[in-house]
Design a protein around this nucleic acid. Sequence first.
DNA 1: GAGTGGTCTAGACCACGCG
DNA 2: GCGTGGTCTAGACCACTCA
Lengths: 253, 253
Amino acid sequence: MGTTQLESVPEPKYWHLRTVLSEALDSEFTVGEILPNERDLAARFGVARATLRQALEQLELEGRLQRRRGVGTTVAPPRVGVAVGTEQHAWPGAKDDVWQLTDCALAVPPASVADALEIGRDEPVHTVRRSRVTHGQPVAAELLHIPQSSVPDLSGIDAPSGAARARAVLRELHRLELEGQDSAVELGSARADDAKELDRLPGAPVLVVTTRYIAEGRTAALSVATYRADTCRLTFGDSGGVEIHEDPERRAS
Amino acid sequence: MGTTQLESVPEPKYWHLRTVLSEALDSEFTVGEILPNERDLAARFGVARATLRQALEQLELEGRLQRRRGVGTTVAPPRVGVAVGTEQHAWPGAKDDVWQLTDCALAVPPASVADALEIGRDEPVHTVRRSRVTHGQPVAAELLHIPQSSVPDLSGIDAPSGAARARAVLRELHRLELEGQDSAVELGSARADDAKELDRLPGAPVLVVTTRYIAEGRTAALSVATYRADTCRLTFGDSGGVEIHEDPERRAS
DNA sequence: GAGTGGTCTAGACCACGCG
DNA sequence: GCGTGGTCTAGACCACTCA
């Protein structure tokens, strides 16, 4: 390890502070423990509160800290591994699915969704809202867009909205044969409604997972799932959720 | 771009500003165009520079803007899709691999890497450094950790380091039969050296992809790849890199 | 050297959770 | 009502790029 040396160009205070705090978290704090408040910490390190906050923001982004207004700053537990892709593809809402259905509505989607579904921009689609909870914590909010052509036989469904309607839409969707799926992950920021569902403030960093479900040679459904970036590690592949715990900043290499 | 309007709303100024700027980017700017400088923009919207910067930071996180010290703020192109997982698993460095080998060294890895490789914490491993370039831009830096037990037959390799040695190590690794692999994605912040390679400042948000390569019933290699979160969309599955372009903030839903 | 974004300060007030 | 983190201000200076 031992890398701390004089540098021709001094690093920013907040960055140095981040390192110092990070090491303190490793050695002197336990998960869930409450840190001193920001004003005290800033005074202790002899910096302005804004500078201290910059360091805390970094650490929060890295999943080391959790801050809550009106409460305080606590040491975060290690990120939870959340399986988002498995070897065997499956429709959303298949059995042993971890999502909770919350709502369903028929409406015209944003243009980007219409384009991905390869439908007209004025064509309404069924949009199922789901949420995902792990270890008692909300980790993701999802909008699942299903064009009417994928579920043509929805007659006899009387529920105009709500979880009952969502179940009916998914049941219809499952009649199609799933031919494939692919996903993309990118960084985003939580809109107000997602933020609320994820128990975060608007603008909080999220990992946006966009999944296309292919059936009958076309995109039969499109999922846009918003995961809390601070608490989640998304796992893909054979052994979803199993213990890798690589440190995302790799301080000690 | 509108002028001095900022009506009193319950939402924070910087958030509203972000929305206003985002809409202006959609309608009044083209990719690569230079925005007015921060001092002018702040004055135009009647806010302090720090507040304006908070809005710009959000937009940069979302991949809408690119800021460079000494130069200015420009409108970013859409994120590039980067394939990081395919249906057919393959060793790193196999043919039609997009990575550039830069270096290789034998050293004791960080504890987290040793644990993931299921080796002793004092055992040295070969660490290959690679970088990935797309469309002329650096998008990722990787450390590939290979325990000595995976490449037992490295005699006759004289190069003590450098790309030549890296090639030799990978060639040896390919003699094993790859049985499986799995990946995890999480948010991190760039260390100084990765930041330099990615042409970003330290602490820049990155997507850290950790991949375990399984051979002979154990973890034969561990890759920790750091992707620029502002410019990349990581794709998994059948049709890596093909055109989905979901907006990560989904403004218009 | 001029102009840009990046860092930092020392304050102020606000919104929220909880007793 | 009090303490917390969240927002905001109006400055200052630094580091960098480029003509």
